[in-house]
Amino acid sequence: MDDDEHARALVDRARDGDDDAARELIRQLYPMVAKIVRGYRPRGAAEEDLSQMIFVKVFQNLAQYSGKVPISHWVSRIAVNTCRNQLTAEKARPELRHADLSEEQAAMLENLATSDEALSPDRKLAARDLVEKLLAMLKPMERLVIDMLYLQERSVAEIQKVTGWTAAAIKIKAFRARQKLRRQIGGLL
């Protein structure tokens, strides 16, 4: 029995009220849901609360799952829509200024701008922190696209499967987000 068939069998059992199957389904889907939630980088809502909200929706609507697409795709769309609805009201953070950077982040950015040398582990940590700050200035959907494309290194086709958005919409969001980030970096140098 492959993964998909196994997941489908779990869904059928969970629909019939089998708690063990429902728990197994949650365990299997949790890493994927957590990844999507983290991609949105929620500020107001905690990651765990958002994941909880998503799973409750999944089980409330399990009777509507037709089985035409893999359960992981169906759940990932619920996750994306829940995150989007939850974070729509969240305002983007104000622009980042050079004075907001730590010493390490400023040095790392200088290093990236002037040399081809690979960054040291400390500087990589600073790079991750700076990317977090920069992404916080984007809209939630732009954040998700940038996270999936560049930090999780997923293809546009994969993002399409997860989000249900068209390839054109994904590319436009990525383009706009990169424009904003480029502008921001220009202001930090």
């Binding site: 701008a113 991750r128 480029r182």
Partner: peptide, 18 residues
Amino acid sequence: MKNREEILDRLFRSAIAP
């Protein structure tokens, strides 16, 4: 000084963490 596009790509590559 590298262009912003290149800096952004390098920043993303450096920020990738398993």
